[in-house]
Simulated assay, not measured.
Amino acid sequence: MRTEQDVLRISILATLVVAAFGIVFGLLSGSFSIVFDGVYALADASMTVLALWVSALIVKSAQGTLPGRFARRFTMGFWHLEPIVLGLNGVLLIAVSVYALINAVSSILNGGRDLEFGYAIAYAAVTLVACLAMAALGWRANRVLKSGFVALDVKAWLMSGGITAALLAAFVLGLSVEGTRHGWMVPYVDPAVLALVCIVIIPLPVGTVRQALADILLIAPSDLQAQVDRIAQRTVSTYGFFSYRAYVARVGRARQIELFFIVPPGQPARSIEAWDRIRDEIGDEIGGDVDNRWLTIAFTADAEWAE
């Protein structure tokens, strides 16, 4: 798994298997919490497919290997799709969880439901192992890849693992009290644990949604703004410019930077090559992943062109 696409493909396949496994065993055991686990996995898989497609477009765009039609129609690249997909993923997972919470509360108010603990425990044990294995696999790969999509996928596997661990504990507890004086609790085990799990996982994608919204709205990251300001101020001082204007944004994995330097009127002329050398110096200082960086540097004696 050397690329982001490799990790996401394996994750999609594993997610589909786990989802199908969950829906079948949920129906066999009569557990809505297991069915929810499967539906949650399906929702995550659908978003991972979309993430894989967007990731492939971004990589091909950066490498200049896009088909001509795409290259002509998307001249600014596909970075803007990444925060849209991440935000949509987070919102979808929250919506699914809220819906499941409402159903769990309704079930509790209606007296709970009976379920077959044997099927339920078998499902939870196998699925927990699968979730932890996939999370570990993705985390290990992302130490090198440093991908937002893979990081979100790892978080989703951990969330699924947390759901499954809670289900396993609840099912074991329900089996242990079945037939005892606490047997009245058994019908409430499934909806109660589902409600608890939903309350825990609903806030988890909020951070991802907030960051995605900041990227979509082109909110300037303070660290990137400070770095660009520092470099621009040094350039102004070194070359005797009047001032500068800096515009920065982070869009998914990409950094978009526009720098305008206000040059004093009548300053001795420089050759095109000399201006390009200044641009190269600034670009080298900014650094970072140049394949995912949109850097524009302009020089003008008229401040209105920089506003």
Rank of each mutant, 00 (worst) to 15 (best):
residue 24 V to Y: 08
residue 32 F to Y: 10
residue 12 I to G: 02
residue 68 G to V: 06
residue 104 A to F: 04
residue 112 G to M: 07
residue 102 I to V: 12
residue 75 T to I: 10
residue 36 F to W: 07
residue 44 D to L: 00
residue 63 Q to L: 12
residue 43 A to C: 15
residue 90 G to D: 05
residue 70 F to L: 14
residue 92 L to E: 12
residue 53 W to Q: 13
residue 37 D to H: 02
residue 24 V to Q: 07
residue 104 A to Y: 02
residue 108 I to H: 04
residue 14 A to L: 10
residue 55 S to C: 08
residue 63 Q to E: 13
residue 112 G to R: 03
residue 71 A to M: 09
residue 95 A to S: 15
residue 95 A to Q: 08
residue 86 L to A: 09
residue 67 P to Y: 08
residue 25 F to E: 00
residue 88 L to S: 15
residue 35 V to C: 07
residue 94 I to H: 00
residue 27 L to C: 11
residue 73 R to W: 11
residue 112 G to P: 02
residue 46 S to R: 07
residue 71 A to H: 09
residue 80 H to R: 15
residue 23 I to K: 03
residue 59 V to W: 06
residue 80 H to I: 12
residue 93 L to A: 10
residue 75 T to P: 05
residue 15 T to W: 01
residue 70 F to W: 12
residue 89 N to F: 12
residue 109 L to Q: 11
residue 17 V to E: 04
residue 41 A to K: 05
residue 16 L to R: 04
residue 92 L to T: 15
residue 24 V to M: 09
residue 116 E to V: 10
residue 64 G to H: 12
residue 96 V to A: 15
residue 78 F to S: 00
residue 32 F to T: 12
residue 40 Y to K: 01
residue 102 I to Y: 11
residue 44 D to W: 01
residue 47 M to F: 14
residue 65 T to F: 10
residue 64 G to I: 09
residue 97 S to T: 14
residue 11 S to V: 01
residue 31 S to K: 00
residue 76 M to I: 08
residue 88 L to E: 07
residue 99 Y to F: 11
residue 27 L to Q: 10
residue 79 W to M: 13
residue 110 N to S: 15
residue 105 V to W: 01
residue 30 G to L: 04
residue 79 W to G: 15
residue 82 E to M: 09
residue 51 A to M: 11
residue 43 A to P: 00
residue 102 I to G: 12
residue 43 A to K: 01
residue 63 Q to K: 13
residue 63 Q to A: 14
residue 109 L to H: 07
residue 108 I to P: 02
residue 74 F to L: 08
residue 39 V to E: 04
residue 31 S to W: 02
residue 115 L to W: 11
residue 51 A to L: 05
residue 26 G to F: 06
residue 115 L to I: 10
residue 116 E to T: 09
residue 115 L to H: 11
residue 12 I to W: 05
residue 106 S to F: 06
residue 67 P to E: 01
residue 23 I to R: 03
residue 57 L to F: 10
residue 74 F to M: 11
residue 32 F to G: 11
residue 72 R to A: 15
residue 64 G to R: 07
residue 116 E to M: 09
residue 83 P to D: 06
residue 91 V to C: 10
residue 39 V to N: 02
residue 114 D to G: 12
residue 109 L to I: 11
residue 13 L to V: 14
residue 104 A to N: 04
residue 94 I to R: 05
residue 94 I to K: 05
residue 46 S to C: 13
residue 70 F to P: 02
residue 111 G to Q: 03
residue 102 I to H: 09
residue 105 V to G: 04
residue 44 D to H: 03
residue 60 K to F: 00
residue 36 F to Y: 10
residue 102 I to R: 08
residue 104 A to T: 07
residue 93 L to G: 06
residue 94 I to S: 14
residue 68 G to C: 02
residue 21 F to C: 04
residue 99 Y to H: 10
residue 105 V to S: 03
residue 30 G to M: 06
residue 35 V to W: 02
residue 97 S to K: 01
residue 101 L to A: 15
residue 39 V to R: 00
residue 116 E to L: 06
residue 38 G to L: 03
residue 105 V to Y: 02
residue 68 G to H: 06
residue 53 W to P: 05
residue 108 I to N: 03
residue 63 Q to D: 11
residue 82 E to N: 03
residue 37 D to E: 10
residue 23 I to E: 04
residue 56 A to C: 12
residue 57 L to P: 04
residue 90 G to T: 02
residue 113 R to F: 00
residue 78 F to A: 06
residue 61 S to D: 14
residue 14 A to E: 09
residue 112 G to T: 03
residue 75 T to R: 13
residue 57 L to D: 08
residue 21 F to D: 00
residue 31 S to L: 03
